[in-house]
Design a protein around this nucleic acid. Structure first.
Lengths: 237, 237
DNA sequence: ACCTGAACACCGTTCAAGT
DNA sequence: ACCTGAACACCGTTCAAGT
């Protein structure tokens, strides 16, 4: 069979297509979500709007509504796309605590890879198929730990919530530092200057409170360890 | 001294003021924040915009900018107004764990009293004077528990985060139920219908996962207990 | 069935002009 | 100093009309 697509060869100079924009990828949910994720990766959630997204896809905003019911659904699809990237291991009863921690680090990393996208899953609780698979995987790890069903159920809410908010706050911090490189230093100075008479405990603890950059990871690990230790106290084996 | 203000008596029928709108309260940060909180209480964060807020104050949107730098600052002021209502007890070393829990319940209740306002403090970390006093109070309780400084510092981040996100999600749930009374029942049905072949753990745990209305409080208490137990394991006394 | 231009009904914020 | 009307530069979404 001869080449039947113009995609695979450069356009010859005599072609009437010469000088046109590259053939536009036909619109589809897939293509829209791909483009939306690219916009978020480049400029965060604030940069994502239907008009700009349409522009990215070489069309008008109205055209998007044939494939997506609106911006809310688009955000849900974005979240589920990211959830699809999360790898959840098969439960190993011997090391369920380590697996819970690895799960938390994995989800945090996947969310943090897309700026403040985590914020979108705070407003709309994710119920897409991939998100549900992630939850199912987490439930599996927790059950293998021999925890009571109600504890497993609560923990499967609590952990993703903790992870998501941490990723979100982290992204806001990163964004802030991008726009205002010395914001954090100014804030630290402000906190150090608070009068000890009215804020005795802040005054006493400014330094441990205002950590450096690596501190964000430490704080996450601290919270994670706290939760897992608490869960372990419920294990009946 | 004679009455010098028209505010204290009904307008007499011969007054030229008769039939006018009641004398407008002069604009001020206070008045603007009051009105904004009333708008949020009535319709949530989504209902709060500068134009509608101006209307509420019988003026144009541009007038607000003489007292408030913009919507971001307004939200910060709103959060700090709510923080001012939070009561923090003086530390009692004997019952620091109970005090931490009482603190958490108090902050949650204050936030939950204003619809989804908690969401505003997720995007912008509160640094207003009253918010800092609240943090200082929490630090005091934790220090009285004999916890290491770094643990105290991390916990003072983690706890408000946990409380705020819980209040926020709770408000979103409440709002959803207001608009779509049988949303939750539909969602429960959907979860029950998930194929056990692909979602074995969800299938096994739908019931503990999909609690009733009081479940929200139970889940909060569970998370709170988990955190406090974890903290207690660091106490050196 | 899919796409489009144009419009509708909103937003936050600015700015020159008024008092 | 404080307030205002009017405009600027955006938004999400709809809808009649096209192919």
């Amino acid at each position: 069979m001869f080449v039947s697509s113009t995609d695979e060869l450069p356009t010859p100079p005599w072609s009437s297509l010469k000088g046109r924009k590259p053939a536009r990828r036909p619109l589809s949910r897939e293509a829209i979500v791909d483009a939306a994720l690219a916009v978020v990766d480049a400029g965060g959630l604030a940069a994502l709007n239907m008009r700009r997204l349409a522009e990215e896809l070489d069309t008008g905003p109205a055209s998007l509504y044939a494939h997506v019911s609106g911006k809310d659904e688009l955000l849900q699809l974005l979240i589920d796309r990211v959830a699809a990237e999360v790898e959840v291991p098969a439960p190993d009863p011997e090391r369920w605590q380590g697996q819970v921690k690895d799960f938390a680090r994995e989800l945090r990393a996947r969310l943090s890879a897309h700026r403040d996208l985590a914020g979108a899953s705070l407003a709309n609780i994710p119920t897409g198929p991939h998100a549900l698979l992630v939850i199912d995987g987490l439930l599996g790890i927790l059950r293998a730990g021999g925890l009571p069903d109600q504890v497993v159920a609560y923990a499967a809410d609590l952990l993703p919530q903790f992870i998501t908010i941490d990723a979100y706050e982290g992204s806001l911090y990163a964004e802030r530092m991008e726009r205002e490189p010395d914001y954090f230093e100014e804030f630290r100075t402000y906190m150090r200057a608070l009068p000890a008479s009215r804020f005795p405990n802040i005054a006493a603890l400014v330094e441990p409170m205002m950590g450096d950059d690596e501190d964000a990871d430490d704080r996450f690990e601290f919270g994670l360890d706290l939760i897992v230790r608490g869960l372990a106290s419920f294990a009946h084996r």
